[in-house]
Design a protein around this nucleic acid. Structure first.
Lengths: 112, 112
DNA sequence: AGAGATGCGCAACCCTTGGTTGCGGTACGG
DNA sequence: CCGTACCGCAACCAAGGGTTGCGCATCTCT
C-alpha cells in the first residue's frame, strides 16, 4: 500500500503551469503552443516544452497541420491521472482519520 | 474558479520524497532526520532539507530535544493540504465529465 | 572526568528542469 | 513572390533535490 503511483503521470500533473495548460486545452477544445502562450505568463517555447512532456506521458496528443501543431487532451489518460490524484488524497484522508482516532483514544485514557 | 490553491502547500506535498516522509511520520508517530533517512533512499541531509520546507509551510513541527530534533506532523495543516488535493481532483473530474457529455452529444448529433 | 560515538547544521558542489533569448526553417497569404 | 506567422533547435540561466565533507554539540561508557 505504498502509493503505487505512476510517478511520471503524477509529476506531469504536478507542475502548476502544466495544470493550467491542461485546463486551457480542456476549456478551449485544444490549442497550439502559440495560442496557449497568449493566455499564459510564459513564453511559447516554455509551453512547447510542457506540451512535449505532456505528450510523452500521453496526457495530450499533438497533430501537425500545416505550419501549426494542434494539441488535444487525451481524456482517458487524464481521467487516470485524476483518479490517482484523488486516490492519494483518499489514502491520506483515511490515514489521518485513523491517527486522529488513535490520539483521541489516548487522550481519553489519559484523562479518565 | 481558477484553482485558488495555496501553491506552497501543493508544491510541498508535490514532491514524492516529501510525501513518503509525511507517510513515515504519520505511521511512526514522528521521527528525526536520521531515523527517517534510515527508511528512505536518500541521505540524512536531503531529509533534513525536506523537513525544513515542510516545517516552513507548517505541515510538520520540529522540536529540539537534546542532540536530537524530533519532527511531528501537524494534522490540521495536512488535512487542509489533502482537502486541496482532493478538491483539485474533484474540479477536474467535473470538467472531464462536462467535456465527455458534450462530446457524446456531438457524436449523437453527427450520427443522427 | 575524558574519549569515542551519535546527531545535527552549514557549505560547497552536481544535475535536472522550468524558463528565457536567439536563431533558422517552413508553410500561408497578400 | 515576398513578407508574415508558426514552429523547432540550441545555448544559456536559476531554482531545487541530492550528495559529500566538514565542525560542533550532546550523549554514553568506562
Amino acid at each position: 500500500m505504498t502509493e503505487a503511483i505512476d510517478d511520471e503521470l503524477w509529476s506531469a500533473v504536478g507542475d502548476p503551469t502544466r495544470r493550467r495548460i491542461l485546463d486551457l486545452l480542456l476549456a478551449g477544445g485544444g490549442g497550439t503552443a502559440t495560442t496557449l502562450s497568449d493566455r499564459l505568463p510564459v513564453t511559447r517555447q516554455a509551453v512547447a516544452k510542457h506540451l512535449g512532456v505532456l505528450d510523452r506521458v500521453g496526457l495530450v496528443h499533438g497533430t501537425p497541420s500545416g505550419r501549426e501543431r494542434r494539441y488535444d487532451v487525451d481524456e482517458a489518460q487524464l481521467a487516470r491521472a485524476v483518479a490517482q490524484l484523488t486516490s492519494v488524497g483518499a489514502t491520506w484522508d483515511a490515514r489521518l482519520d485513523r491517527i486522529k482516532r488513535i490520539s483521541e483514544a489516548i487522550q481519553r485514557r489519559r484523562q479518565g
